[in-house]
Design a binder for these strands. Structure first.
Lengths: 267, 267
DNA sequence: GCAAATTTGTTCGTATGTATT
DNA sequence: CAATACATACGAACAAATTTG
């Protein structure tokens, strides 16, 4: 019991939440009530609450109170493409299809297209010199109306110059960009590599996903590099997903059909 | 300037770190110095520091000061097995091999073997009724001496009864458990599925990985379910990795040899 | 090895501001 | 508009960890 007071209070709150005595969505006693209950000052009680906030167990709403966080129903993205569709089909199409299969309603914004200079990681993954012009296509996606992911695809600008000019259009590309590149330039994506990382969200991401500004909810950042038949990177897709509502599935070899995780709930 | 004072101070500190004016590993001014610099109280300065801590930019060390965090060199785990080795070879062997390839020194503890009752997710993934006896084999791994992952594999107890009794031994299984099961029982792992999730670490994990106790550094939890030739789950491996020093690579189709990310550094 | 100085950690009190009901 | 509840801010004192002389 050498632990500081605010930690002991926090541990007691945590125990009540873990045991289900304080159910998800329920309101905790107010700061003033807790102050009396634990014979502590209001500041100490607030320190205890900050601790359990940091553990991701509760959240405070100004003027309302402190509430036990509700677990979200995670959406599972399968990174290993269905062989039937070839390696890494259309992102948007796949996405809408997969989400529907989990009986949830997908939607997405129109692509926002920009010309940019490739820097750092983008140039590196695409195998281009720094500051080469690239086409950037950005899209935001929702599931059942809640923001789910932000995606930006980068293509070497040379592809548009060589005839794939619709890459620069701010419209969805029917059948997907990969199929379009195969049709117009004979450029086939024969494989891709995904690099999965986790970091704190930046301000734009926190705003879009409605995450707390202090970065306590991390985001996945997935870098997908697609390769053509010559082994050259043909595109890089960077997708950001909040870790509190997303999971990934990777299947290798023979995996029985109803994948072990489907429309599930986290422990 | 409607922003509260502690946020303005925090933003100023953040800017100095992002711009490199405060380099990684360097010490920030002390709380008393910052208090003078910003004409704020010590408590307000401390609130500002707590904010940048939450953003993962700095850390405080009692008695020493506040320091800009050093980025870790991430270790990249490839989840899609090399086809040459068959689907999902030996975990330990693969691990040591892969780590060596990234020119870093792997090590791991001896397995800690226990008999347990399958509950919740474990029973579900293994396709067993709740409270069925399972063999649990737990191991901890290090890279260059720093703790890197905690892994627990669960096998239906029936496998040991049917002749694979070394599953219950607290020793490394030469050539890997998957190979051992193939040799003794003719049970071949023909495929596996990985489910990648992120959550806050529990106390044991925080202690082992030396993570801050308040859960601001999340962990990956990867569930790997292995299937035999009949499509039956033969084992479940749950591995926990801190997100601040781990990344995952998934390759599908033809991906050129020097994988795009190798011994790299995060942006 | 110890004592002093430095620096962050904990706890209280108090006052006022802002958001919501 | 009033009441309630969390947010911001300051001041103060003592504790604990670490470094330094």
């Amino acid at each position: 019991m050498a632990d500081p007071l605010y930690r002991r209070i926090a541990d007691d709150l945590r125990e009540q939440i873990d045991s289900g005595k304080l159910a998800a969505g329920k309101q905790l006693p107010t700061e003033l009530e807790l102050k009396d209950k634990y014979n502590a000052s209001r500041n100490t009680v607030r320190d205890a609450i900050k601790w359990v906030i940091s553990l991701g167990l509760v959240e405070t709403r100004p003027g309302q109170g402190t509430f036990v966080v509700e677990k979200r129903n995670p959406y599972v993205t399968t990174l290993t493409a269905d062989p039937a569709k070839g390696a890494g089909g259309d992102e948007v199409f796949d996405y809408n299809l997969e989400v529907s299969k989990q009986h949830r309603q997908p939607s997405n914004t129109d692509p926002q297209v920009e010309m940019q200079k490739a820097t750092g990681k983008i140039a590196e993954q695409l195998g281009l010199p720094e500051n080469t012009q690239v086409i950037s296509r950005h899209q935001r996606r929702f599931i059942d109306g809640t923001p789910w992911s932000m995606q930006t695809s980068f293509y070497p600008r040379g592809l548009a110059a060589r005839g794939a000019d619709r890459l620069s259009d701010a419209d969805d590309i029917e059948g997907g960009a990969v199929q379009y590149l195969a049709d117009t330039l004979g450029l086939k994506q024969v494989g891709y590599g995904d690099l999965i990382t986790v970091r704190t969200p930046d301000m734009r991401e926190a705003e879009f996903f409605k995450l707390p500004e202090d970065g306590r909810v991390a985001v996945f950042e997935v870098f997908r590099t697609g390769f053509d038949q010559t082994g050259t990177p043909m595109r890089l897709t960077v997708t950001v997903f909040p870790t509190d509502r997303n999971q990934f599935q990777v299947n290798v070899g023979d995996v029985p059909q109803p994948a072990p995780s489907e429309g599930n709930q986290q422990s």
